[in-house]
Design a binder for these strands. Structure first.
Lengths: 212, 212
DNA sequence: CGTTTGTTTGAAATAACTCAACGGGAGTGG
DNA sequence: CCACTCCCGTTGAGTTATTTCAAACAAACG
């Protein structure tokens, strides 16, 4: 979505880790753009199981759909300390739902998240734990690249193993074991919140069986 | 999507089971509306694993997104013998991408599939085989209701256990065992291509832990 | 310095998978 | 009408992937 970010109405501020940008059923009158840090949208089952359904990285707009529905509806939480800009919804809405071109650009953005969801349905439904984690790590690096956070396949990775578990749909203990293996095979290194792809080709092979 | 279906340009015809409505990378100049029968969109991994990512039931438009991309891109196959109407894409496109209201209705339709995908990400990521199957069966009945195919919780269910497996992301053998259990507990009956919800409340409880 | 949060490890339990075989039913060709 | 095949559902036995529980440890935090 093309949204200028330098207007007076755009407030920039900080959010502490674990604070919510949105809660279940909550109405909102603004849209967030992540300037720095990571956030996610998730679902919680009554017994405590959690599934993360979207990650928001620096540069991402947080839940473009809000523009349409005017509701957040589902919880969004900061996975790290966060720096966000807040954009009044009416401002975007004026541009994106009352004008044809804006609408079109928004459609594009939604189509993009649709594609992403489809990919994850395949991952969750038909790939092994190792494949899912490799696919995720590969994805993360590619998504971080545009924001300049990746230097020679080395980048920040602030997710805990619990977070990873709730993205790829396995237990955190098993995440740990898969990561051990990948480290042992020299595919990645992951420590102190930083990820290195030591063997990107192998990572891609393990995680990204291209669909036929 | 609101599309009138009684125009001369709308051709209606039959498609045999296992025939493809679309193939990988295929361009298309028409949109399908399922009049009768079931179809699905799927992804195939190189080693043969299949994940179904969308089901199309009577009354559904098959892949509304085509209107935008002009490409099918991913395979869509008939799961039963099918009766479809074919609508020239340019006709819909004229209405839906060059006019504001049409665009809006299309957005709504896409938002709907987005919601669906999110739900399935949670199911695939965090629910057990039994929960997924119950959720699916419940969903199917609700989706068939508008087309009048459900009489007192009894409806057609032409999916094979292989199909079910590829929707819920488990093996067909395991699908069989879960179904056995559900039958044994008197929750459903499923035979000769027909499904009965004998205990809808229990089915909902098993499959539909509402998200918090 | 004590507390909390996140990672690592082991051992046992369970969910789901694979392989293999059998049987019924529906279609097909003779 | 029969024999044949293929598809689909069913079942059993053995295996593998993943989970759970529990504990120990390390790093970060106030």
């Amino acid at each position: 979505m093309a949204v200028t970010t330098l207007e007076a109405s755009h407030i920039r501020y900080e959010v502490r880790r674990h604070k919510h940008l949105a809660r279940r059923h909550e109405h909102t009158d603004r849209l967030f753009r992540i300037e720095d840090g990571w956030a996610c949208q998730y679902r919680l089952l009554p017994d405590g199981r959690r599934q993360i359904i979207a990650l928001f990285l620096p540069g991402d707009y947080c839940e473009a759909q809000w523009v349409l529905t005017g509701q957040a509806n589902w919880p969004v939480v900061a996975l790290t300390d966060l720096s966000v800009t807040e954009i009044p919804l009416h401002e975007i809405r004026a541009r994106h739902t009352r004008e044809f071109d804006g609408m079109k650009s928004m459609l594009g953005s939604i189509m993009h998240t649709l594609k992403n969801h489809e990919k994850w349905i395949v991952n969750l439904g038909r790939m092994t734990a190792t494949e899912r984690i490799c696919a995720l790590l590969h994805d993360l690096v590619e998504r971080l690249r545009p924001s300049g956070k990746v230097v020679s396949n080395h980048c920040p990775m602030p997710l805990t193993q619990y977070d990873l578990a709730d993205i790829v749909g396995i237990s955190s203990v098993h995440v740990n074991r898969v990561l051990q293996t990948l480290r042992g095979e020299g595919v990645i290194s992951l420590e102190a919140g930083r990820l290195s792809l030591l063997n990107p080709a192998e990572l891609l092979r393990l995680g990204g069986p291209a669909h036929v």
